[in-house]
Simulated scan of single mutants.
Amino acid sequence: MDKYQIAVVVGSLRKDSINRKLATALTRMAPEGFTFTDVRIDDLPLYNQDDDGHQAAPVMRLKSDVSAAQGLLFVSPEYNRSIPGVLKNALDHGSRPYGQSVWGGKPAGVIGASIGAIGTAVAQQHLRNVLAYLDMPTLGQPEAFIHYKEGFFDEDGNVGEGSRKFLQSWMDKYVAWVKTHNNPGDHKPA
């Protein structure tokens, strides 16, 4: 496979989110053949099992976007030492009805930035637990708990000089991870 479509899920709804900026900057670091689609999660209704038989249009759009992707990139802040509710809601919608999850077998990368000293370490661990249950092979190393400070992005929105090498290395590993999990001989759950 020479072309890879990656679905990007940003766990923040804030217009000026540093994690949305990080997602954009990361996509610029990917090699040719990788394209990225932002997955919209701001208009999903709250998950309710009663709706499994007649899922709303935004839920069907989410599931279509994820199904079309060869990998997922989760870029999320940390809220109260965990993942934002809007992200968990999207994960729940995509996994239902039971037995019809769109997440299974999709390789994932997890990263995030915060003004806090530990970045998004605890949220990433919680997210990794959920992704493991959803049968998503998730890049383990390198971990990237980004402590956001002034100057992290340059004037064009790219990762600044101080973090560029590390994040390019992270992106290179993520790209290799996606390629490894999209080999034609690999069995992918339906």
Rank of each mutant, 00 (worst) to 15 (best):
M1D: 01
Q5H: 14
A7W: 00
G11D: 14
G11H: 11
S12C: 05
K15D: 05
D16R: 12
I18Y: 02
N19C: 02
N19F: 14
R20Y: 01
L26Q: 12
T27Y: 00
A30F: 00
A30Y: 02
P31G: 06
F36L: 01
F36R: 04
F36H: 01
R40Q: 11
I41T: 07
D43F: 01
L44Q: 09
N48S: 03
Q49C: 13
Q49G: 14
D51A: 09
G53L: 04
Q55F: 06
A57M: 05
M60L: 14
R61S: 06
R61E: 12
L62W: 11
V66Y: 14
S67R: 15
Q70G: 00
L72F: 12
L73T: 05
F74H: 07
Y79E: 09
R81E: 13
G85Y: 03
V86N: 14
L87R: 06
N89A: 11
L91R: 12
L91N: 05
L91V: 11
H93Y: 10
G94T: 09
R96D: 05
Q100M: 10
Q100R: 11
V102Y: 04
G105Q: 12
K106F: 02
P107H: 11
A108Q: 11
I111F: 05
A113N: 09
A113R: 04
I115F: 11
I118K: 14
A121R: 12
A123Q: 10
H126A: 14
H126I: 12
L127R: 04
V130L: 15
L131P: 08
D135S: 03
M136F: 07
L139M: 08
G140P: 08
P142E: 08
A144D: 08
I146C: 04
F152E: 10
E155H: 07
E155A: 15
N158Y: 07
N158D: 07
G162E: 07
K165Y: 10
K165I: 10
L167D: 02
M171I: 13
D172R: 09
K173S: 13
K173E: 14
K173Q: 12
W177M: 06
K179Y: 01
K179W: 00
T180D: 13
H181M: 15
N182V: 00
K188N: 02
K188H: 03
A190H: 15
